[in-house]
């Protein structure tokens, strides 16, 4: 297990997790402690299980037929797979950003107000407050403040991705999962997203899947290396990238395989 810094609280604890797609086992005996208000990066070659692992943290795998999970996933010490767990509450608490930005075909304002409206925020002034603060947090406010009523589809790819981040923040999550959030963006937009991740970790626990090892190195505090469904190594990013404990990790990050 990883040595966490003093003063760090654990947000998510994964115990002996096994995951199956029908008869195929995708994750094997994963144990992992994810600290609060830090960025944890999941790296590894395609098919290593990192995205499956990410999606298990807000039960996104539930919507795939024939999947099964063994073991425990505790968020704030509560088992999210217990029969008593409320999936809607869980997904409110654990937001998600996908590889490809997916704004609703609505105005910029409505994209962000959508979640709060569902959660019964009706007051126009209150909604405006939420929209503004989320756009500021997502570093998009200055670029869109004069055209909130225009369609979100008119934004650039990088802006759309930041809009999706703002939309996720509008329902006040505590954990934000990001699945390759910058892989479809140019270097400048990628940099904006990375700067943003660095800002957001003050308030949120962030878990990011990335194929870009340099990105993992740049943005994360902790890095987990997955290979063929196993968690090979999990440690402080600085240690993983300067002196990994496992040869497989070393081989992967120095580009010998994967």
């Amino acid at each position: 297990m990883v040595d966490h810094q003093p003063g760090e609280n654990l947000k998510i604890t994964v115990e002996k997790m096994n995951f199956f797609y029908g008869p195929v086992q995708a994750l094997f005996e994963i144990n992992m402690n994810i600290p609060e208000k830090k960025v944890t990066a999941l790296i590894g070659p395609s098919g290593c299980g990192k995205s499956t692992f990410l999606r298990s943290l807000n039960r996104m795998n539930d919507i795939i037929d024939g999947t099964r999970l063994e073991g425990k996933v505790l968020i704030d010490e509560k088992d999210i797979y217990s029969p008593l767990s409320d999936v809607v509450e869980l997904r409110k608490k654990v937001g998600m950003i996908f590889q490809k930005s997916n704004p609703f075909p609505k105005s910029i304002f409505d994209n962000i107000a959508y979640g709060p409206r569902i959660h019964s925020v009706k007051d126009k002034g209150k909604l405006m407050e939420i929209v503004e603060s989320c756009l500021i947090k997502a570093a998009l406010w200055d670029e869109v403040k004069d055209r909130l009523d225009q369609s979100a589809m008119g934004l650039s790819g990088g802006q759309q991705q930041r809009l999706c981040i703002a939309r996720a923040l509008a329902i006040e999550p505590e954990v934000v999962l990001m699945d390759e959030p910058a892989s479809a963006l140019d270097p400048k937009s990628t940099l904006k997203i990375e700067d943003l991740i660095n800002e957001l970790k003050r308030e949120y626990t962030i878990i990011i899947v990335t194929h870009n090892m340099q990105q993992a190195a740049r943005v994360s505090d902790y890095t987990a290396f997955f290979y063929e469904g196993h968690l090979i190594e999990f440690g402080a990013t600085e240690q993983i990238f300067t002196n990994p404990n496992q040869k497989q990790t070393e081989d992967y990050i120095t580009g010998r395989f994967g």
Binding site: Q214, A217, R218, T237, E238, F241, T242
Partner: peptide
């Protein structure tokens, strides 16, 4: 220095 070289290239 090593950290900056390893993490930020």
């Amino acid at each position: 220095c090593l950290k900056i070289l390893a993490l930020y290239q």
